Simulated scan of single mutants.
Amino acid sequence: MSMFSIFDVAGSAISAQSQRLNVVASNLANADTVAGPDGSAYRARQVVFQTALMGPAGMRDTAAGVQVSTISEDASPGRRVHDPKHPSADPEGYVTYSNVNPVEEMVNMISASRSYQNNIEVMNTARTLLLKTLQIGQV
């Protein structure tokens, strides 16, 4: 594995975490939404990662990165609140809200942003090491 493949691996992780942050932002933005005209409320979405080979197929020392394989919807039921005066209440007087748990989403956001920052740091460290190596050759 060459030194340059570090940038490919860290770059794939940065891209994946960026998509995760976008999904978390969407979930948090819809945390308190109610069921729409079709009767279904917003469902929380989760990013599913998978391993991705970064080099040409068949190479012995191919690096493995990460990519988003799917974005799945949480199948758990939404939160139901009894509020017969709400315009979106069902015949029993219940309003169905999204199934987004804001606390879990904040944890996901912190985890994704830290992973993003760590991969930026990996790229910066690799860049610094490559520059130091070039400086050694100049002496």
Score class of each variant (00 low, 15 high):
M1L: 08
M1F: 13
M1C: 04
M3C: 00
M3S: 12
M3K: 07
F4G: 07
F4K: 05
I6Y: 07
I6V: 15
F7W: 09
D8Y: 15
D8L: 15
D8A: 15
V9Q: 13
V9G: 12
A10E: 11
G11E: 07
S12P: 06
I14F: 11
S15H: 08
A16V: 03
Q19W: 01
R20V: 02
N22K: 02
N22L: 08
V23C: 06
A25C: 10
S26A: 10
N27Q: 12
N27Y: 11
N27S: 07
L28Q: 05
A29K: 11
D32P: 00
T33M: 14
P37V: 00
P37R: 01
P37A: 08
D38R: 01
S40F: 14
A41Q: 01
Q46A: 11
V47S: 03
V47A: 03
Q50V: 10
A52Y: 13
A57K: 07
M59I: 05
R60W: 01
R60D: 00
T62K: 11
A63S: 14
A64N: 13
G65Y: 10
V66Y: 12
V66H: 04
V68T: 07
S69H: 03
T70F: 12
I71Q: 01
E73V: 01
A75G: 04
P77L: 00
R79G: 06
R80E: 13
R80N: 04
H86M: 04
A89G: 05
D90T: 06
P91K: 03
P91Q: 02
E92I: 05
G93L: 06
Y94K: 02
V95R: 02
Y97A: 07
Y97C: 03
N101S: 14
N101G: 10
P102T: 00
P102N: 07
M109K: 10
S111F: 09
A112W: 06
R114H: 11
Y116F: 14
N118I: 13
N119G: 07
V122L: 15
T125N: 15
T125Q: 15
A126W: 14
T128E: 09
K132Y: 06
T133M: 09
L134Q: 05
Q135M: 10
Q135D: 14
G137A: 10
V139R: 15
